[in-house]
Design a protein around this nucleic acid. Structure first.
Length: 268
DNA sequence: CGCATTTCCTGGTAGC
DNA sequence: TGCTACCAGGAAATGC
C-alpha cells in the first residue's frame, strides 16, 4: 500500500524520465469510476515541467498552468511497458509511453488547475512534508493538541504531517513506545519530539530500501521494495516484540488494523 | 464544526 | 472443483 516512501521512490524514478517530455496523447481503458479520471485531455500537447510529490500524491507540473495529479491508492503501479491486465491510463510521450495499472480502482489520475485542490479535501488540508523545515516540534505539538482522536487515527488523516499510512504509523509509534490509542492531545511535548524524529528516520530508511512491498507495490522498473524486511510490528501479530519479546497485538482502530506491543506501548 | 462510521473496489484465500 | 465469506486500506462520503 503506497505511502510516502513508496510514492517518493516512484517520483525519483519518474523525474529524469518525464521532465521536459511532451504528452502526445492520453487514453483511458476501463477507467471507472470516471470521477477519478477527469480532464486528461487538457494534458495533451503539454510539456511536463517537474515531477513533485505532496504526501502520497504525485503532482506533475504541466506547461499550461495545470497539474496532473496521480494517486496510487492501494494497488496503483506506473511503468513504461504494457501491463497484462487492469491498465487504466496510457500516456503517449515523445520518447516512450507511461502506463497506469490499478487493480482495485482506489487510485486517481486527473488534471486540475495548478494548486487548486478544493475538490480534494485531503490534499487541500494536508500538513507539512515530513522532510521540510515546516515540520517542527512546535508545529507538530500544536497540531496534535487540536485533536481528541486516537493518535494513530489522527496521524492517518494527513493533517498533522503528510504521507503516513497504516504501515509507517504503526512502526513509528512502536519505535517511540506510544500506544496508538492515546488521544493525540495527550501526547507530551517530549514524546512529540521523539515521534517527529522517528517519523523522519523511518520514512528515510524506507526510501533507501525503495519502500515496502507486501503485495502489489512495485517500483517503476518493476522491483519490489525491501523495507518489509525491517518492519518491527506491522503484520507481525502474535510474534515476539523485537525489544521485549511480548507478543505483538492487533486491534482495529478507526477501522484499520493496528499492530503494537502491549508492554512497550502500554497506556501511560 | 469535530469526530466516527461507512463506502468504494477486486484478488487472494480460508473453509467447506 | 466451485462456492461463499471475508480481508486488505487511502480518501471521500455520509451520519450524528
Amino acid at each position: 500500500m503506497p505511502e510516502l516512501p513508496e510514492v517518493e521512490t516512484v517520483r525519483l524514478e519518474l523525474e529524469p524520465i518525464l521532465v521536459n517530455q511532451k504528452i502526445l496523447s492520453a487514453s483511458l481503458v476501463d477507467a471507472i469510476p470516471a470521477k477519478k479520471y477527469q480532464d486528461l485531455e487538457l494534458a495533451i500537447g503539454q510539456t511536463i515541467k517537474s515531477v513533485n510529490r505532496r504526501g502520497k500524491f504525485l503532482i506533475l507540473e504541466l506547461s499550461n498552468n495545470l497539474e496532473l495529479i496521480i494517486h496510487l491508492g492501494m494497488t496503483g503501479v506506473i511503468a513504461f511497458k504494457e501491463f497484462e491486465k487492469h491498465v487504466r491510463v496510457k500516456l503517449e510521450l515523445e520518447n516512450n509511453s507511461l502506463y497506469f495499472q490499478d487493480v482495485r480502482r482506489f487510485g486517481r489520475f486527473l488534471v486540475v488547475k495548478a494548486k487548486d485542490y478544493k475538490s480534494m479535501p485531503t490534499l487541500h488540508k494536508m500538513g507539512p512534508e515530513p522532510f521540510s523545515k515546516q515540520f517542527t516540534n512546535k508545529q507538530f505539538f500544536t497540531a496534535l493538541q487540536k485533536s481528541n482522536t486516537a493518535l494513530k487515527t489522527y496521524l492517518l488523516s494527513q493533517k498533522p504531517v503528510a504521507g503516513l499510512g497504516n504501515i509507517y504509523v504503526d512502526e513509528a509509534l512502536w519505535q517511540v513506545k506510544i500506544n496508538p490509542q492515546t488521544k493525540a492531545k495527550d501526547i507530551s511535548l517530549a514524546k512529540v519530539k521523539r515521534l517527529r524524529k522517528a517519523i523522519i528516520e523511518i520514512l528515510q530508511a524506507s526510501i533507501e530500501a525503495q519502500g515496502t512491498t507486501l503485495n502489489d507495490y512495485r517500483t517503476v522498473s518493476g522491483e519490489v521494495g525491501e523495507y518489509a524486511n525491517q518492519l518491527n510490528v506491522y503484520g507481525h501479530t502474535g510474534e515476539p516484540c523485537p525489544r521485549c519479546k511480548t507478543e505483538i497485538e492487533r486491534i482495529i482502530l478507526g477501522g484499520r488494523s493496528t499492530h503494537f506491543c502491549p508492554k512497550c506501548q502500554n497506556i501511560n
